[in-house]
Design a protein around this nucleic acid. Structure first.
Lengths: 227, 227
DNA sequence: ACATTTGCGTTGCAGTTGCAACAAAAAATG
DNA sequence: CATTTTTTGTTGCAACTGCAACGCAAATGT
């Protein structure tokens, strides 16, 4: 049952059981459980390993100079955190907290970050997967930056929906967010988001029910044809 | 003179001349010049190589469904673009334009993305550098996301200045932006930024002249001590 | 079936901010 | 040094949006 979740992660996707075992051993995998509210990683601590959430959810948080703490990311089952820090051996500028009771697998990139050990074919294959994971994450962060850079809520919504439409190849699709997560992802207020979504629906630009969205506007189509 | 610029990039930093030559050959380096306004990469095209700007500046742009194009990034000398796309072999969702006349070195990650060739020690060493570059970029993007996620301009300014203060180890430092770039980086309007900077100066929170900023507030210190 | 929790939409309000247009200052050019 | 160009600050205005509070409906638990 663990394996199923592990394979949802790009790092392990498509590996057969034997290869998965080898990969886990190369990464010195070990599991650990946490109770709700527990700190997985305190701020300014070394990160010898990165985490893969097997169950539950963790939050990556960061504090400002003025004491406010802000959510950097929500990490759910099958998702990872801290790969870059662990790979570079940096101290963590963030701290990590269990939202629910959760189970995390810790994976050490030490072998991957040692050029000498890449001579081993297994390590090389895993390194390729790891780098691909980083690259994919960079692209995902790029998408998020594009959205967050928009100046108005409406533009943010448009940017988000455009991305999902492009990605799903259809003008109807489901978002993997509830409204609160969606507002957080857009960097805005939940109620303001609801208000703007309602406005856009009244204007006939979009339709939605729960997390199922449909792009309606003929403007949308015209503009994308033009490209 | 090229070498000096190349070594400003994490991928090549600290290499001696011989190693640099080997690295360039492994990456099938080739140079190309562009005139102002020229397209380096059109949208939806394959990216067999990523770019390292040797001279001038390029912009990474992206179009929304509604036809607005937005600046994703400004890339200056010594900086790279498209590594993730090239590594993953994805089609480019963005297009790239020369802001000035510029010279770009194209580098192909094909050897790095092939696990079999990692058996070669030179390739392995370069692969390590490449992955480190990706990881460092991910951290930088994280910083930017933290800033863009702030809900008010003042919080964005605080977040940005805090990061630079922490990074420079001092409360006085120079930003590498002019006001327009700074506003873009913060995802806000230039005039609104000027207004808020002025307000913060009047309140005695910060001081600045040009791009030289100083954090003044005793609040700042008190809050950071608290951590 | 009832009580409780959770998620989502609505609204009043005040402060913020995008926007456009202009003024002032600084830098570049000749 | 004078002139042009670029950068930065200022301001009025309208619209946006964060915020808090509330209502409603669906889901959950007992």
């Amino acid at each position: 049952m663990n394996k199923k979740i592990l394979r949802r992660c790009r790092l392990f996707a498509g590996l057969d059981d034997a290869a998965l075992e080898r990969a886990l051993s190369l990464l010195a995998a070990r599991e650990q459980s946490y109770v709700r509210g527990e700190f997985l990683v305190p701020v300014a601590s070394p990160m010898p390993a990165f985490g893969l959430v097997l169950e539950g959810q963790v939050q990556v948080l960061r504090d400002d100079r003025d004491g406010h703490h802000m959510i950097m990311a929500n990490v759910g089952a099958g998702d990872t955190f801290g790969e870059s820090l662990a790979y570079l051996g940096r101290l963590s500028p963030v701290y990590i907290v269990a939202v629910d009771a959760c189970r995390v697998m810790w994976l050490s990139p030490a072998r991957l970050a040692d050029p000498a050990s890449l001579a081993d074919a297994d390590v090389a294959a895993l390194s390729f997967r790891f780098t691909s994971m980083l690259a994919a994450r960079a692209l995902a962060m790029n998408d998020r930056i594009q959205i967050l850079s928009q100046l108005t809520i409406r533009s943010k919504i448009n940017a988000l929906l455009s991305q999902f439409a492009a990605q799903s190849g259809s003008d109807s699709f489901a978002l993997p967010f509830d409204r609160e997560d969606m507002a957080f992802y857009l960097g805005t207020d939940r109620s303001a988001l609801s208000r703007e979504l309602g406005r856009m629906r009244r204007e006939g630009l979009i339709d939605f029910k729960g997390n199922n969205f449909t792009l309606l506007s003929p403007d949308f189509r015209a503009a994308s044809d033009g490209m």
